[in-house]
Design a protein around this nucleic acid. Structure first.
Length: 642
DNA sequence: AACCAAAAGTTTTTT
DNA sequence: ACTTTTGGTT
C-alpha cells in the first residue's frame, strides 16, 4: 500500500497520511485534497493495525463521514466501515445514551430542535407574564437565538446582552428568570436541545475522569474535519478526548470559516499549536479542483480579508474560461440567464448534477425555482427551510414523541391543539393531570374524558391505546398516527395532497428503524438535507438533477459549473453585516467558499435595481468583493436580451 | 375558553 | 410575503 500512497499523494499529503502518533494540524486550502488526505489516513491507520472501532472521525455532516469511510473501505477493505464516525452532535447523542446517569440524565432523554425550543420558550413567556415595558421584549425566536448564543460562545447572559443585544439590557432580569425556567423545564421533561448535547458531553468528559479515560482510552486516534467551524465547547471536547494520548489530527482552513453565527471561531484552529505544543503543522496549498483563472478570482477575493493568514493557492491546470460577472436587469432576468446557460451546458454534455446554483439565503432561489419548474428542468434544493420543520411533519412526530417521552410538554401542546374545541387552557389542564398521575402515558386522558371536545379526545385516546403496545414497530406506529392525523390534515391545509406525500415519505424513512427513540433522535440531529425536489419520480435518487444550494450547505462539495446568485451589494454581503468588520469578513469568506466550489465555469450574477424591502433601499451595485477586479481577472457580461 | 379576523412586526446561514 | 400577536365575537 505504501507504494500506492506515494504515487497518489503529493509530499505534504503523504506526510499527513503517514503521520503516526501525537497531534497534527493540517491547514488545507480549498480543493487541496483534504478529504483525500483524511480518507487515506484512516485507511493507513487501519492497515497498520489500529482497530477500526478505536478510531474516531468527527465531521461536519454524517453524510461526509459516511462518504469518507466508504472511500477508505474501497482503498483498503471493509474494516474501514467500522470506524466510528459522525458529527459532534451525533457522537454526543451516542455517548450520552450510554452514560446518561453520570450527568443526571435518563437514557431515554428526547432531543428538541430549534422550533421546539422556541415553542417551549413561548409557553414560558406566557406563563411568566409580561415584564414592565421598556420597549419591545424579545420574541420567542429572538429568545432562542440569545440563549443559544450564550451556550455556543460560552458567554454569560449579561455578556451576550451587552455585546449583541444592548437594547434588551433593561430586561436582563426577566431574561435571566426565563432562562432559568427554560433550564428547569428541560430537566423536568428530560429534554436536550442542540446546545445541551455538546454541553453535557463536555461535562461528562471533564467532570468524570473515569468515563473520560474509558472513552478516550477507547478512541486511540481521533480525527476532526472542518476544524475551523468548531466552537469552544467542541474544542474542549476534542481536548478532553485527546489529552491522555495526544493522537489527534485536525484538518481545516481558517479562510473557510463560515459558522461564527453558531459560535464557531476560527481561532480554534489558529490556537491548536498552542493547546498542543508538540503539534506538527502541515499546509496543503496545491489546488486540484479549479482552473487557474478561477483561482485568480478566489485569491483576489481572499486578499480583501481584514484578518486571517495570507494564503495563495496554485494549480497546474492553467487553461480555462475566465469567470464572469453577469449584470442582469432584474431578478427574473437573472433566473433566465441561469436557465439558458444550464440548457447550453447540458446540451454540450455537462450532466445537470455537475452544475450548481449557490446563494446566500434559502429564499434567494424562489424565482429561479419557478422558472426551472416552468422549463421542466429537474432540480434538488439543499438548505433553507427544512422538511422536518414543516408543521405537518412536526404534527405527526409529536404523537410519536409522547410515546417515547410522555412528559414532553411541547409535543402534548402540539397534538392536543389539533383537536377542535381544545385550546391552550384545556391542554394545560390535561398535561398537568397527566404529569401528576405519574403513570407514564397511561396517566394521560384517563376516564372520564374532560367534557367538551369529547369526540376528538376520544379518537385520540383510541389512538394512544393502540400505540401503547410495546411490540409495535416504529413504522407501524407511524402508520397508525397517519391514519388518525389524515382527516385533520385535510381540514387544515388546502395543499394537503402535497403534505400527505411528505408524510408518506417520512413513513418510508421510518421503516429502516427498529427503535422509535433512535428514529426520533436521528431525525432531529440529522434531518434529511434535501428540502425540495421538483422531479416527478419520487423514489429515483439516481436522476440527473441540477443542484440548488445555500452556500453553507455546499461546503466541501464541488461542481463543473457554479452560478452564484445575488452577488449584489446588500445581499451578498448581506446588508446586516456592513457595520461590523468581523461580520463583513465572514461574508467574504462565504463568497470565497462559494467561488472555490467551481472546477471549470464560474458565474456571478448581479441583478440591478432591486428594491430591498427590509432596508427600504434600492440595491444596484455588484458585490463589493467583486467590483474592483480588473477585467483581465473577471469578465463582465450583460444578461439583457432586448 | 376557543376561534377568527385584522394588525403588527420580521427577514441569513445550521446542528 | 409570512408569521406572530392582538382584539373582538361566539
Amino acid at each position: 500500500m505504501i507504494e500506492r500512497y506515494r504515487k497518489e499523494l503529493n509530499p505534504a499529503q503523504l506526510e499527513a497520511v503517514m503521520h503516526d502518533k501525537g497531534p497534527l494540524l493540517v491547514i488545507a486550502g480549498a480543493g487541496s485534497g483534504k478529504t483525500r488526505t483524511l480518507t487515506y489516513r484512516a485507511a493507513r491507520l487501519v492497515e497498520d493495525g489500529v482497530p477500526p472501532d478505536a478510531i474516531l472521525l468527527l465531521t461536519f455532516t454524517r453524510k461526509a463521514a459516511r462518504e469518507m469511510l466508504r472511500r477508505a473501505a474501497l482503498l483498503l477493505d471493509a474494516r474501514c466501515e467500522r470506524i466510528a464516525g459522525g458529527t459532534f452532535h451525533s457522537f454526543a447523542n451516542t455517548v450520552l445514551r450510554r452514560h446518561a446517569p453520570r450527568v443526571g440524565l435518563s437514557p431515554g432523554f428526547s432531543i428538541i430542535d430549534r422550533v421546539d425550543m422556541e415553542q417551549l420558550l413561548g409557553l414560558l413567556l406566557k406563563e411568566t407574564g409580561a415584564p414592565p415595558d421598556h420597549g419591545a421584549f424579545p420574541r420567542k425566536r429572538t429568545l432562542a437565538e440569545i440563549f443559544s448564543k450564550c451556550a455556543n460562545k460560552v458567554w454569560s447572559l449579561e455578556e451576550t446582552i451587552d455585546r449583541d443585544y444592548p437594547h434588551f439590557a433593561p430586561y436582563l432580569e426577566s431574561l435571566q428568570a426565563l432562562r432559568t425556567a427554560y433550564t428547569r423545564q428541560k430537566e423536568q421533561q428530560q429534554l436536550l436541545d442542540y446546545d445541551d448535547l455538546l454541553l453535557k458531553l463536555r461535562d461528562l468528559l471533564t467532570g468524570d475522569p473515569e468515563t473520560r479515560d474509558a472513552l478516550a482510552g477507547g478512541y486511540r486516534s481521533i480525527m476532526v474535519d472542518e476544524y475551523q467551524d468548531t466552537n469552544r465547547i467542541q474544542a474542549e471536547i476534542v481536548f478532553a478526548l485527546a489529552r491522555p494520548h495526544g493522537n489527534i489530527m485536525v484538518v481545516g482552513d481558517d479562510s473557510q470559516s463560515i459558522y461564527s453565527f453558531r459560535g464557531a471561531d476560527f481561532r480554534n484552529i489558529m490556537d491548536f499549536p498552542r493547546v498542543f505544543p508538540d503539534a506538527r503543522v502541515i499546509t496543503l496549498e496545491e489546488n486540484y479542483r479549479s482552473t487557474a483563472p478561477i483561482l485568480e478570482v478566489t485569491n483576489a477575493i481572499l486578499s480583501q480579508a481584514q484578518e486571517g493568514y495570507p494564503k495563495h493557492l496554485f494549480t497546474q491546470h492553467s487553461v480555462g474560461p475566465r469567470p464572469v460577472l453577469v449584470h442582469a436587469g432584474s431578478e427574473n432576468s437573472q433566473s433566465r440567464f441561469v436557465v439558458d446557460k444550464v440548457r447550453e451546458l447540458s446540451a454540450g454534455g455537462v450532466p445537470l448534477e455537475d452544475i450548481a446554483v449557490l446563494f446566500r439565503a434559502g429564499f434567494h432561489s424562489f424565482d429561479l425555482e419557478l422558472e426551472l419548474t416552468r422549463e421542466g428542468l429537474p432540480f434538488v434544493k439543499y438548505g433553507g427551510f427544512k422538511f422536518i420543520e414543516s408543521a405537518h411533519i412536526k404534527d405527526l412526530l409529536a404523537h410519536l414523541r409522547v410515546l417515547a417521552n410522555p412528559y414532553d410538554r411541547i409535543s402534548w401542546h402540539r397534538l392536543l391543539l389539533l383537536i377542535p374545541k381544545v385550546g391552550p387552557k384545556s391542554v394545560e389542564k390535561i398535561y398537568r393531570a397527566g404529569v401528576a398521575a405519574q403513570r407514564g402515558l397511561a396517566g394521560f386522558l384517563p376516564d372520564p374524558l374532560p367534557a367538551g371536545g369529547g369526540a376528538g379526545l376520544k379518537r385520540l385516546r383510541e389512538l394512544l391505546d393502540a400505540l401503547g403496545d410495546p411490540h409495535l414497530s416504529p413504522s407501524r406506529a407511524g402508520e397508525a398516527v397517519y391514519r388518525y392525523y389524515h382527516p385533520i390534515l385535510r381540514d387544515t391545509y388546502d395543499d394537503h395532497p402535497r403534505r400527505a406525500r411528505d408524510l408518506e415519505q417520512l413513513l418510508q424513512m421510518m421503516e429502516r428503524y427498529r427503535s422509535l427513540e433512535r428514529f426520533l433522535s436521528e431525525v432531529t440531529i440529522e434531518p434529511p438535507t434535501a428540502v425540495s425536489d421538483n422531479s416527478l419520480s419520487l423514489a429515483d435518487d439516481t436522476a440527473d438533477r441540477l443542484v440548488l444550494s445555500t452556500v453553507h450547505s455546499a461546503k466541501g462539495l464541488e461542481w463543473h459549473t457554479v452560478f452564484i446568485l445575488w452577488a449584489l451589494d446588500g445581499r451578498f454581503p448581506s446588508i446586516h453585516s456592513l457595520e461590523a468588520p468581523e461580520q463583513l469578513d465572514e461574508e467574504l469568506r462565504l463568497m470565497y467558499v462559494a467561488a472555490t466550489r467551481a472546477r471549470v465555469n464560474l458565474f456571478f450574477l448581479s441583478p440591478g435595481y432591486v428594491f430591498d424591502r427590509a432596508s427600504g433601499m434600492v440595491l444596484n451595485r455588484p458585490s463589493r468583493f467583486l467590483e474592483g477586479m480588473p477585467a483581465a481577472v473577471l469578465k463582465r457580461e450583460s444578461a439583457e436580451i432586448w
